[in-house]
């Protein structure tokens, strides 16, 4: 989009929406929408408080562990499925089912099995992220150019070398693509987990704010969350573009 001969940056329209928000907030149309400026003031107040830092810390902990397990389990599983037809045929139906299944329904099971704590949230996060990571790693391995594998064998690569020097790198763009989508899903998973098990992290914070009708606080935390989620997803997209330079040339 161009205006007066200048190219407007992609996300610049968010400023327009921010102004609109401020205006609606100042007009006092609804109690639920305080002016954006007030939200920002609150944001800086809230951001240093122990309650917020605790929620952020707990969320980051659950998120990082959840993603870690999803990658550590998901990528090797996916590569194995891509290489071995029997494993693939046994696992693929389940991966596909859980990819599209409403995983929120499983949270109550996790709650009764693993308690109302961190463990359940971590598992929820992993469950949200892992399936797409598996599927992409599998797709990455399956599209590997056959002559690349044959080349490695001709030059005497052992199966382990073939795995670390060929399969992993040749499938890397797809693997990273899967991790990016997986991480976006994990962000949603960790929040959904906290909302349903609402005694830790932001889940608890939301309960507190909504019980006390602290709208500005509520929005401030939401903005921080959305901004973090968006930054993570853009960062990974950037990484993916850096790697996919060679994917285009295959």
């Amino acid at each position: 989009m161009r205006m007066f001969g200048y190219r407007l940056p992609g996300m610049s329209s968010l400023i327009v929406w921010g102004l609109l928000w401020e205006l609606v907030g100042r007009l006092g149309v609804t109690f639920f929408l305080p002016p954006l400026s007030e939200v920002f003031v609150t944001l800086f107040e809230v951001i240093g408080t122990p309650a917020f830092l605790k929620a952020l810390g707990e969320t980051a902990y659950a998120f990082i562990l959840g993603v870690f397990f999803a990658i550590v389990i998901g990528v090797p599983t996916g590569i194995l499925m891509g290489k071995n037809r029997l494993v693939d045929e046994l696992l693929l139906p389940w991966v596909n089912i859980f990819l599209s299944a409403p995983l929120t329904a499983l949270v109550p099971v996790l709650m009764v099995l693993f308690g109302f704590g961190m463990q359940s949230i971590i598992i929820t996060t992993t469950l949200f992220a892992i399936w797409i990571i598996i599927l992409n790693a599998r797709a990455g391995v399956m599209q590997i150019n056959r002559s690349l594998v044959e080349m490695a064998r001709c030059f005497g690569a052992s199966p382990f070398e073939a795995f670390t020097k060929i399969y992993f790198w040749a499938a890397l763009p797809e693997i990273l693509g899967g991790v990016r989508i997986g991480v976006i899903r994990a962000v949603k998973g960790v929040i959904i987990g906290q909302l349903l098990i609402s005694i830790v992290g932001f889940g608890a914070l939301f309960e507190l704010y909504s019980a006390n009708f602290l709208m500005a606080h509520f929005w401030a935390v939401l903005i921080v969350l959305f901004a973090l989620a968006f930054t993570i997803s853009e960062l990974l997209a950037y990484l993916e573009r850096r790697v996919s330079y060679y994917a285009a040339k295959r």
Binding site: T30, F32, I184, V187, K188, V190, I191, I192, L195, F202, F206, E207, Y209, S210, F213, F218, V221, L222, L225, F226, A229, F230, I232, S233, E234
Partner: peptide
């Protein structure tokens, strides 16, 4: 698309 929109639920319930 990137954000955890589920976090809006408490607000929706209030509204």
């Amino acid at each position: 698309q990137a954000a955890p929109l589920a976090a809006l639920i408490p607000l929706l319930v209030m509204a």
